[in-house]
Design a protein around this nucleic acid. Structure first.
Length: 315
DNA sequence: AGATGTTTATTTACAT
DNA sequence: ATGTAAATAAACATCT
């Protein structure tokens, strides 16, 4: 362990899995989707550690994109030049890091084989179209309508997406919130709380589109989101890097200080969700309290699917 | 040829 | 100690 001589953390391996790094990058983008090269760029910009061994970690990252159902591929429209597809987060992947650890999720997010059949599984599935080409491929190729009423200024603004081939089950004005990380940190987001739950996740589950402003909380979610490298931001990397210095802090201490205020999401070692005890009004078989993200394909196929979302159960 | 994706296999590390 | 998520390696396919 390097005795912190100022910069010693800067090139340390960040306490994020590839999945969380990628989710971070995607969430940080205005369109909530990025081409591979931009994911690379995001990571390299903020984490000096990843400016080396690029062959190795980028291969791993690509593996993760393909392998994990929480990432979906969105084809480019003809008017969006560039290489490769866009990558986004599966709308139903929920809080993948609800346990407070960005290193290891409680359970892998897996998509049901027959998900395309019932849109009732999630209103969000309206954004996806049954294009089951290759059997066994994860989600269907998405024909998501990533049209933002007005793309937030900045990153390569895309023309409003009209949908593919005229097929459209557009959710008027809606952005599909991918990743309800608000639950991790955002409990104090202004005006957010409804019955103790972040508004956006409630909305999500009621089938309402979550407005972009709400997903902007992301910027407070990930310690490094919004932070650029020293060269770009003028902020010394070492200073910013110290943000994830306290690896060992308890999750409890991270989320709320004494006054109940929310603190930045510093990744912590996975720990038993302290408040995960019996949820009032939600007693019953354990598997019924299992987060959707914890469901295995087999469970879902056997009809054990949990209609309730983690965000509504735990938080 | 190189970037992008997909897939299988093996190893490592963490949680329970 | 066992189960599993994540990391790593590598073969291979596709597309530009």
């Amino acid at each position: 362990m390097p005795r912190p001589g100022k910069n010693s953390y800067s090139d340390q391996k960040p306490p994020y899995s590839y999945i969380s790094l990628t989710a971070m990058a995607i969430q940080n983008s205005s369109e909530k989707m990025l081409p591979l090269s931009d994911i690379y760029k995001f990571i390299m910009d903020r984490f000096p550690y990843y400016r080396e061994n690029t062959q190795r970690w980028q291969n791993s990252l690509r593996h993760n994109l393909s392998f994990n159902d929480c990432f979906i591929k969105i084809p480019r429209r003809p008017d969006q030049p560039g290489k490769g597809s866009f990558w986004a987060l599966h709308p139903d992947c929920g809080d993948m890091f609800e346990n407070g650890s960005f290193l290891r999720r409680r359970k892998r997010f897996k998509v049901l084989r027959a998900e395309h059949m019932s849109c009732k599984s999630s209103p969000m599935m309206h954004y996806f179209h049954h294009h089951h080409h290759h059997p066994g491929s994860k989600l269907t190729t998405a024909s998501a309508h990533h049209e933002h009423p007005a793309g937030p200024a900045g990153v390569g603004r895309l023309p409003p997406f009209q949908g593919y081939g005229g097929i459209s089950c557009a959710q008027p004005g809606g952005f599909k919130h991918p990743f309800a990380i608000e639950n991790i940190i955002g409990r104090d987001y202004k005006g957010v709380v409804a019955g103790g739950l972040p508004l956006s996740s409630v909305m999500h589950h009621l089938g309402y589109p979550v407005p972009p402003q709400l997903s902007s909380v992301v910027n407070s979610m990930w310690p490094h989101v919004g932070m650029l490298s020293e060269s770009m931001s003028g902020v010394p990397v070492s200073a910013a890097a110290s943000e994830y210095a306290p690896f060992g802090v308890s999750a409890k201490g991270l989320y709320h200080n004494a006054s109940g205020q929310t603190l930045p999401a510093v990744p912590v070692p996975i720990k038993p969700t302290p408040s995960l005890g019996p949820v009032p009004g939600l007693s019953g078989p354990a598997h019924l309290c299992t987060p959707a993200s914890a469901m295995e394909k087999s469970d879902l196929l056997e009809g054990k699917a949990n209609p309730l979302h983690p965000a509504l159960l735990l938080s």
